[in-house]
Every structure is written in C-alpha cells, then in structure tokens.
Design a protein around this nucleic acid. Sequence first.
DNA 1: TCGTTGACTATTT
DNA 2: GAAATAGCCAACG
Length: 114
Amino acid sequence: MSIYEKVYKIVRQIPKGRVLTYSVISHMIDTRLSAQGVGWALNALKSVDQTQPETGYTSENVPWHRVINSRAGISTHKQKSIPPGRQKKLLEEEGVVFQEDETIILKDYLWRDI
DNA sequence: TCGTTGACTATTT
DNA sequence: GAAATAGCCAACG
C-alpha cells in the first residue's frame, strides 16, 4: 500500500458535513506521515493521469474538500488548478457554515472516530 | 544522491 | 498578530 492510499482511505471515511485537518490525518497514519505529506497526496489527486497509482482514486472518489488546515480554514485559494472558493462552496453544500474570516467552528465540525 | 518545492505546523521575533 | 524560522517528508529533475 502506497503512502497515498493511506491518506485516501482515511479521507473517504469522513462523513458528510464533517471535516478533518491535515495534522489529524497525519497522526492517524501509523507511518507518521507529515501534514505536508498529506497535502502532497491530495495534490496528486487533482488529476487521474497524474502520478496516480493504479488504485483508481480520483477527485471524485475522495472528498478532498473535507480536509482543511490547522487554522480551520481552506488552503486551496492560491492553487491554480482549483478555482477560488471551490472548496468553501462544496463544504457549504454539505451544511458546513463558514465564518466571516473564512474559517469554521472546528470543534463542531471536526470528525472524531465513532 | 542532491537540491528544490510545496493543498503544512509550531515556535520565535 | 504578521513575518521569519525551523522541522517536516514525498515527488521530481
């Protein structure tokens, strides 16, 4: 199992309307993948014919928008391949409410193990 | 193997 | 609280 699949597997378990931070995911992975490594895994998810393994994971299979940074905000607004506000909109459609500073109430939306 | 580059984080100025 | 610094690790040329 590659380092990507571990990230994707966890992200896919996030229920609708819940979010997870990079640091939390990195702690869930036994190999202690850094938060930056998590971000890199999601970055490879943007396109299918990228460095994507033969796992079939795509941006449609994995709810990448439910992954946010430690400040409870989105980190894709400067990303070229992703339109600004895309992640925010996807989350709002799932019931996640953003504050004026483009962050969410982390303690209310952070997904914890069932 | 090496240097650079990030969808990162925590600490220090 | 913003900016700089340091630690972090996988991908890439």
